[in-house]
């Protein structure tokens, strides 16, 4: 399979901040590749370099076989970029924005209409509304339409679903799935861990570095400890009481349960339940569960933070 996107040792510094520190990875043709990381992990800097909007301090990036520094003009006509911040023209209507982007890329809305039809049908009732007056979900759909209007070979989507409701997010990811099947390669960043599981492969970023790259099931394989879901009748106090258990390693609220790992090689969960009950937590239930992507990401984040603290000490 041919790589649509390759980076090698890409680094970028802003003053004292090392935004990217030797990032190397590649994305294959028609792959849906997710970049997961916290705010400030370097995701947006990476996207800007790939979109030829920023020069790397060191390293190289090739997009569609072209160097992002030498061949930036050619790359720009062949990629679609959706920046993290809504950056369409707020004072233009839905239709005007779309027509504007089509014209800039020397095409028309009609030419690639089948690519955007599913979304445009939903936008059509608001055709004459100014983009600034749209809701979050509609803005995001319009931005994707504008990024697709020239039928790019590669889509760079920087946090397209941040601040968007669960229904719109679901529809957006169904749309990405369709685009991938049409042969469009997609690099997408997100802070929502549930979305990571919809990608072919995922890269975890923190502090300018890639912590891990793998398929979603490969990623969860990195979680090495036994993981337990703890539930109780009283959820407000469950987390602090569980954290005070002497052998607790990690304690995180996870929806209606709390995910727990133990610091002992073979955890005694009966003792954990007894501890909770003796501390006034009733209705305790504990079961062994399979780790998800979010569990794995948090474990990787924590181990990196503790390694750095150990190095600083």
């Amino acid at each position: 399979m041919s790589a649509v996107l390759i980076t090698d040792g890409v680094s970028k510094r802003f003053g004292k901040v090392e935004a990217l520190d030797g990032v190397g990875f590649s994305v294959d043709l028609a792959e849906l590749f997710g970049v997961i990381g916290a705010d400030g992990a370097g995701k947006s800097t990476l996207f800007r370099i790939l979109a030829t909007l920023l020069l790397p301090d060191a390293g190289r990036a090739r997009v569609l076989g072209l160097d992002t520094v030498d061949s930036y003009r050619m790359i720009r006509t062949r990629i679609g970029y959706m920046p993290g911040r809504f950056s369409l023209y707020q004072d233009l209507t839905v239709e005007e924005n779309l027509a504007f982007f089509a014209t800039v890329y020397g095409t028309t809305i009609k030419e690639n209409y089948e690519l955007i039809r599913d979304m445009y049908v939903q936008l059509e009732p608001f055709r004459t509304r100014r983009a600034g007056q749209l809701s979050g979900g509609m803005k995001q759909k319009l931005a994707l339409c504008c990024a697709l209007v020239h039928r790019p070979e590669l889509l760079l989507l920087d946090e397209p679903t941040t601040g968007v409701d669960a229904v719109s997010r679901l529809e957006f990811w169904q749309m990405l799935d369709r685009l991938r099947r049409l042969g469009i390669t997609i690099l997408v960043s997100t802070p929502y861990m549930d979305e990571a599981s919809r990608c072919d492969r995922v890269a975890f970023m923190q502090e300018g570095r890639i912590l891990a790259i793998d398929t979603p099931s490969g990623i969860t394989g990195l979680f090495s400890k036994p993981l337990f879901a703890v539930r109780a009748a009283e959820k407000h106090h469950l987390v602090p009481v569980l954290r005070s258990y002497p052998h607790a390693a990690s304690v995180y609220a996870f929806g209606s349960t709390v995910h727990y790992t133990d610091s002992r090689p073979s955890p005694d969960m009966g003792d954990v339940a007894a501890w909770l009950e003796s501390n006034g937590i009733g209705g305790v239930g504990i079961e062994r569960i399979k780790p998800g992507i979010e569990d794995t990401f948090m474990a990787l984040m924590e181990s990196m933070t503790s390694r750095r603290e150990a190095a600083d000490a």
Binding site: G37, A41, E159, T162, Y252, M298, E302
Partner: peptide, 10 residues
């Protein structure tokens, strides 16, 4: 908590 990493969110 929009856009925040899972540890910070918790």
């Amino acid at each position: 908590t929009g856009g925040v990493d899972p540890v910070t969110r918790r």
